[in-house]
Design a protein around this nucleic acid. Structure first.
Lengths: 198, 198
DNA sequence: TGACTGACAGATATTGAAATCTGTCAGCGA
DNA sequence: TCGCTGACAGATTTCAATATCTGTCAGTCA
């Protein structure tokens, strides 16, 4: 058959991620991506209208892979308080891990977060929805007492920014961080708790 | 008398703050400061060992002026929950206000915060101590139930980072911010609350 | 004597010309 | 026809020469 490999958006994204990892966000150019794909850079523009949109699509893929394991926890069954605790700790752990394993992509993510781009906002909304799912499970189970699930989910997200927002990444390696996570989570879970029945 | 104006650290700090405000952190030089003081730049080095120490001393002054009004609230009397709420909201308001009124100094502060310099860490510790003071008042009054006041004070500080850490300053102008502050504070205050006696 | 100056070395920042990149599009070749 | 190429204009980045700055110190002056 000797089938010619066609240029698909998916293939471009894969290669762009590699190029971004190799050269870093600041140095990577569309010409580099085209070279790695062995096509002219004009062809890349046939699939993505601008460098920014290409960069954003790569970030979206990266962020989607990040939220997938969290979705599993959010949609699992079981007591909501333990699930929320696990969900938050897993989120912190995944981001922390990525900072170590994939620093160039993390820097890209940080830049995009600063630009408040669509992909990142969408990612945040998606995570807040996952948290809201756990909270409403908790209300149903009688473990939580919450006026507005959506607003409270965002409050949980905001209150844990220190541990998941990329702007605080440098602080994560501080040796006191695990203890500080414990303290904030304890406080938040107590704040959500329904008054004990007797 | 016609007294000659002497060169004191205080006068240098005052002028440096002006220069920093006028030129911005990136552009301001020790030579500019010396020119504004009408002395040679060597004289400035007689009072401060380096540009970094001068910059840090200016930041310290600026931060001390910021925490002074908060100290009043922390040391006041009255019910701790309302006082903590007021203390936090005042902190957010002061920082927010300074971002608007004094953007160059704010950028300096942001840079120093990123460098995790001594003056900023000291400022943070000082604020956490103020929060701890209110919390321990609350424990005495029976309003709060807290295992470790110091740890919890830091947790409160961490959980409100989104609203006071300069790295989040761009997000403060978001129209949803007041509602998000309300949501986080409600959650935290409920988490501190001692179980009702009956 | 002791606060201040000003010249200096090495480090850092500025600048402008040259190189490269982004985004477009007329045209090629399958 | 349709995906791709490659040349192009304007924007951005690089690079090296030049200027400025930081921090020091021997010397001045009151």
């Amino acid at each position: 058959m000797n089938e010619v490999v066609v240029l698909t958006p998916e293939r471009i994204l894969e290669v762009t991620e590699d190029v971004l990892r190799r050269y870093g966000l600041a140095k990577a150019t569309v010409v580099d991506v085209a070279r790695a794909l062995d096509v002219s850079h004009g062809s890349v523009y046939r699939h993505f209208p601008s460098k920014a949109s290409l960069r954003e699509a790569v970030a979206k893929r990266w962020l989607d892979r990040l939220s997938a394991p969290l979705l599993k926890i959010a949609e699992a069954s079981g007591p909501a308080p333990a699930r929320l605790d696990k969900w938050l700790r897993t989120m912190f752990a995944i981001k922390h891990e990525r900072l170590g394993d994939d620093p160039e992509m993390f820097a890209t993510y940080l830049t995009l977060a600063r630009e408040a781009c669509k992909a990142v906002n969408c990612h945040k909304d998606c995570l807040v929805d996952q948290a809201a799912k756990i909270l409403s499970d908790g209300v149903e189970q009688g473990s939580f007492e919450i006026a507005d699930v959506k607003v409270t989910a965002r409050a949980i997200f905001d209150a844990t920014s220190r541990f998941h927002h990329p702007g605080h990444a440098e602080e994560w390696s501080d040796p006191g961080t695990p203890a500080r996570i414990d303290a904030v989570l304890a406080l938040l879970l107590k704040g959500l708790e329904a008054p004990r029945k007797r």
